[in-house]
Amino acid sequence: MKRWLRQRVDAVYEEVLSREISGAPTHVAVIQDGNRRYARRKGDDATDGHREGAQTTERVLEWCQDIGVEELTLYAFSTENFDRPDEENQALFDLLCEKLREFADADRVHENEVRIRVIGEVERLPERVRDAVDYAERRTRGYDRFVLNIALAYGGRSQLLEAVQGVASDVETGTLEPDAIDVETIEDRLYDQPVRDVDLIIRTGGDERTSNFLPWHANGNEAAVFFCTPYWPEFSKTDFLRGIRTYEHREESWRRTRARRAIALLGAVSDPELVEAKSIVERFRDSLPTAEQPDPDDLEGVDGGQVEELDSSGQAAD
């Protein structure tokens, strides 16, 4: 297909996808895969691929803000990446220093009140990278409209292990009772600042795996996952919107499943369970195909005050 025709088709498809999207996930996490393979395909050095990938990162940040995403996490450097050739890593570290400082000084970052945070074993990074991390975090610390997390020297399993070890140590010293351990106990030990549950993971480059990325916040929230074949430097807005559509379809499927289960409960239980089932049906009734939607008259007979109370407390939707 001729280049101009390909561009025209992509533009039309992007417009169609934009019209189809009605909402946005709160937190998107991206595994930026394929920079090196992209560079090799072009006959360039790996550093050239990383530099072009950094331009994609800036575009994705803008796309997220355009549709209402509130938090973006980028998997920039894993703990396994330390095993790559030192020359390649040193060039990547130089690029990270450059981009962290550039982002921290960018007018659009301050105009949009973007807070930059780095998650991972930062102490393992070279001093120049640690200094750039500190600079970016200090420059944007007061913002909260949008959060940009950059995962550097990151390994999800090691993060969880460290958190569990901290809990075990506190139990052993008597500063924490076993019965007091809950979700917040682990989350407080994972990062200095809270990280929202992940709604959507996007991975470029063709591999269909999540590579130990944010296991607590993604798996626990049953995040939608979108795998695509373009290498990260080639990742387009059309690809991004397809990922958002994947999230929306997953949310619609979840609502339909909840409504169908609640309808089944209406015929099998009574009293408190019946009240909750009716509440779920009423909340998610419109997500069902028309043929499956129950008649409102069939839902009569349960005290409306009880249902309203359940809705306001959120119990019925949990």
Rank of each mutant, 00 (worst) to 15 (best):
V275N: 10
R128P: 02
R84T: 00
A223I: 08
A29L: 00
T229N: 14
V281Q: 00
W254E: 14
R285D: 05
R245P: 03
D303G: 03
D179H: 11
E208C: 14
D66T: 02
K237F: 04
R117K: 06
Y75F: 13
Q165E: 15
A39G: 04
Q193R: 14
K237D: 03
R115Y: 04
A223V: 08
R6G: 13
F240W: 09
D188L: 08
A268F: 10
E222W: 10
W216T: 08
R250P: 02
E20R: 15
D286E: 14
P233F: 07
D144I: 08
P233M: 10
A76D: 06
I201V: 07
V281A: 01
G267M: 01
A151S: 12
D134H: 15
S253G: 11
C228S: 08
D44I: 12
E187W: 03
V269M: 05
W63D: 01
V133R: 08
L299D: 09
L100S: 07
L72H: 02
D10P: 10
P230L: 06
L96D: 05
R128E: 14
E70S: 13
D207I: 10
R101H: 13
P233G: 06
V147N: 12
R37A: 04
C97W: 12
G301I: 06
D10Q: 15
E292M: 02
T210P: 02
D83P: 04
P126F: 05
A264W: 03
Q55I: 13
R108G: 06
G68L: 05
L161Q: 14
E187I: 02
C97S: 15
